[in-house]
Design a protein around this nucleic acid. Structure first.
Length: 111
DNA sequence: CTACTGACCTAAT
DNA sequence: GATTAGGCCAGTA
């Protein structure tokens, strides 16, 4: 597992239930600006159950998995069980976008 | 070494 | 709203 994947996954683990974050946001928080694509790779390449990968959406607040992919349905399903309202594969970012506290950031930025 | 690939992003139609 | 075009850059082959 490449080290950068670990940083990304660590950040994703910090997303609280009922909140969502965008790929670019995760990359930024992980100290990897402009590397949103790496986030997507990291998420699909890990099967660890303690990682809430379903709380990561694209900048439009929509699920980035194609409808043809089975994971698409799963992600929506998991989000709803978090209490997030999902309509047409998208969520209201203004309502559910994750804003990490300073404390949360300090926990992660110890590098 | 180069070439291609993205569960992306942003701005501009 | 939707679609297009260009950019981005770590991984992979």
């Amino acid at each position: 597992m490449p080290p950068n994947y670990d940083r990304i996954l660590t950040v994703v683990k910090l997303i609280p239930a009922g909140k969502v974050a965008s790929y670019g946001q995760i990359a930024d928080l992980a100290g990897l600006p402009r590397r949103a694509r790496l986030v997507s790779k990291a998420l699909k390449s890990t099967l660890e159950p303690d990682i809430p990968w379903h709380r990561v959406l694209n900048s439009q607040g929509k699920v980035s998995i194609p409808d043809s992919d089975p994971g698409h349905r799963l992600q929506i399903s998991l989000l709803r069980s978090d209490g997030v309202v999902v309509s047409g594969a998208k969520v209201d970012l203004n309502k559910y976008n994750w804003q990490p506290s300073l404390n949360t950031l300090l926990h992660e930025l110890s590098f």
